[in-house]
């Protein structure tokens, strides 16, 4: 469904992502792990077209979408959340979901007036549904900035789902969550994947979540893929353990190559 071929992004001399090949199949929850600075968030940003790629290509459902800007990526069915939550904090919870009703169904079938001005019944119903889903119905008129941290995470996820995406990119959704919240997130992701049929690319440090929920994992280090496989295989992988825990000095420090 999502194919990254030789994807590279260099910031000056820093190779944030360096020749990455990843294929996410439809219906998968695909994990992307790696130490800090290994290029996971950059990969998400490249898929969404936040900044142009240095080299390589991104294709989605067989069509090349390299360097499509974020709103075009969303129109194609790719929604995302951010590592550091980015809500419209002055807008209310309801408005946050309202402005996000830009998915394929809600956009193409409507005229200008209902899409932009009145906000048609379909959009409003969809907002209600997402409010219900995220458990924020009683906070609908609160400014998003006044919500508790966990509620903000839930709202951001609901906002990404407002467009009814086919592919959801989650950038460290469990960061700062306690174990109970991680468990809830785990269930929610499974539900989205199994009941709603949404393919998920999950960038995450919290191993309890990644190892439990994903079907397949790619591990990155220094912008390169060092391993790919099932959660069990990744846990056993020598290169991954070294990337996370370090290695003894005489082995050198050049990462790369799948083991």
């Amino acid at each position: 469904m999502l194919e990254l071929r030789g994807l590279s992004k260099h910031f000056g001399g820093v190779r944030a992502v360096d020749g990455l090949d990843v294929t996410v199949e439809r219906g998968q929850i695909f994990g992307l792990i790696g130490p800090n600075g290994s290029g996971k968030s950059t990969t998400v940003n490249l898929v969404c077209g936040v900044f142009p790629v240095t080299a390589g290509s991104v294709s989605f459902e067989g069509a090349e979408i390299t360097n499509s800007p974020p709103h075009v990526a969303l129109g194609n069915g790719i929604a995302r959340t951010f590592q550091n939550i980015r809500l419209f904090s002055e807008l209310t919870v309801w408005q946050n979901l309202w402005v996000a009703q830009n998915g394929q169904e809600s956009v193409r079938s409507q005229g200008f007036f209902s899409r932009w001005l009145s906000g048609n019944r379909g959009q409003r119903a969809s907002v209600e549904e997402q409010l219900e889903f995220s458990g924020l119905a009683d906070k609908r008129d609160e400014p998003a900035g006044s919500l508790a941290f966990g509620e903000q995470r839930r709202l951001e996820l609901a906002r990404a789902l407002a467009a009814r995406p086919k592919l959801l990119l989650l950038d460290e959704p469990a960061a700062g969550m306690n174990l109970e919240e991680v468990k809830q997130l785990d269930e929610r992701l499974r539900w989205l994947n199994e009941q709603q049929g949404i393919t998920i690319l999950l960038v995450e440090h919290v191993m309890e979540l990644v190892m439990g929920v994903t079907h397949r994992i790619a591990a990155l280090n220094f912008g390169r893929k060092i391993a790919e496989g099932s959660p069990a295989e990744i846990q056993q992988n020598q290169a991954v353990q070294e990337a996370y825990l370090g290695r003894s000095e005489e082995e050198g420090d050049e990462g790369g190559g799948s083991s």
């Binding site: 969404c48 936040v50 800007p69 974020p70 709103h71 969303l74 129109g75 929604a79 995302r80 951010f82 980015r86 809500l87 419209f88 904090s89 002055e90 807008l91 408005q95 946050n96 309202w98 402005v99 996000a100 830009n102 998915g103 956009v107 932009w116 906002r159 990404a160 407002a162 467009a163």
Partner: peptide, 17 residues
């Protein structure tokens, strides 16, 4: 709401389409 969303956070606004 869309105008204010753009005013608050352009990247987030783009990302919701």
């Amino acid at each position: 709401a869309v105008l204010r969303a753009v005013g608050e956070d352009e990247l987030a606004a783009q990302s919701v389409g």
